[in-house]
């Protein structure tokens, strides 16, 4: 034990801060391909949501984290603890929506948002919206989360114990994508059964949407939907395979981030008032 709540890492230096929020599945290590390309000019803040990576699992509250608002609370807590304001927020996948929730709740904390492969809703609602998945697909995913114990050190103990035993939860291994089903399943349910489409028009900050050209989780049509409903947004299509542009196309992503998020304080004011 002894881990801090959100396992915050601060890298680099610069007048402006980029806060990077990992998506469902892994942890802040996801950003390691991107951070070297920006940390010379920005302060970069990384963290793990409670229940992921090196966070302190004793803070895990199944009720709180059953909703994306719970994870948005983590984002706000990190900003508050570090006294951050006007940050550039980069959120991958579900974290794009978590960041949106946080930015609507506490607008002063954010300056601009970058959404990497966002999806406001993974479910299909024909004929108006196609998130890509049927309800049964997502139920199957929850069943998969139930039986996958990746990087989980104490295998059978917690599975049989079932109860909330903090000492057992604390034995999550250091593995990058550790999954304790009791935690990962809660995050999976919050991620894949949430519908944030109503929130898009409420966005208050300029937003850059980075869309992968081939993404099984968030199709191009989903990125276009986000762009169409998010005021003051820009859509960039990146020719790529997959859902992790920040890992597979980190240089290109870094350049797009740099262009969108001026690193010097004085240039920001002018840039933020200019049309996208």
């Amino acid at each position: 034990m002894g881990a801090t709540k959100n396992n915050v890492t601060v890298l680099g230096k610069g007048p402006r801060t980029i806060l990077m929020a990992h998506g469902f599945g892994c942890d802040q290590n996801m950003w390691r391909f991107l951070t070297p390309a920006v940390q010379d000019d920005y302060q970069v803040v990384l963290f793990d949501y409670v229940g992921s990576g090196g966070s302190n699992p004793s803070y895990f509250d199944a009720k709180k984290y059953a909703r994306l608002e719970g994870y948005a609370g983590d984002v706000i807590d990190v900003c508050t603890a570090l006294k951050l304001k006007d940050v550039y927020f980069i959120g991958h996948s579900v974290s794009a929506m978590i960041g949106l929730i946080a930015s609507i709740k506490e607008p002063a904390l954010f300056a601009k948002m970058v959404m990497v492969c966002p999806s406001p809703c993974f479910l299909n609602f024909p004929p108006t919206y196609f998130g890509g998945f049927e309800h049964a697909d997502l139920e199957e995913l929850l069943a998969l989360m139930d039986i996958n114990y990746i990087g989980w050190a104490n295998y059978l103990g917690p599975m049989v114990m079932g109860a909330n035993a903090p000492d057992l939860i604390a034995e999550l291994s250091d593995s990058f994508c550790s999954t304790d089903p009791r935690i990962a399943k809660v995050f999976a349910r919050a991620t894949f059964f949430s519908d944030c489409r109503d929130l898009l028009p409420k966005a208050q900050h300029p937003t850059l949407i980075l869309q992968s050209s081939t993404d099984a989780l968030a199709a191009v049509s989903v990125g276009e939907y986000v762009h169409a409903h998010l005021p003051n947004s820009r859509l960039e299509l990146v020719a790529a395979e997959g859902h992790c542009l920040h890992m597979t196309h980190s240089q290109q992503v870094a350049q797009l981030v740099r262009d969108f998020c001026p690193s010097a304080a004085q240039s920001y004011d002018a840039a933020s008032n200019s049309p996208l």
Binding site: C26, E140, L144, I150, M247
Partner: peptide
């Protein structure tokens, strides 16, 4: 399956990129 595509993109592919393996 569609669910496994999500699992692949959320866990397996990032692990292959980061750790070079998955078990």
């Amino acid at each position: 399956s569609p669910a496994s595509r999500i699992f692949y993109d959320s866990y397996l592919h990032p692990m292959l990129l980061h750790e070079g393996q998955c078990r």
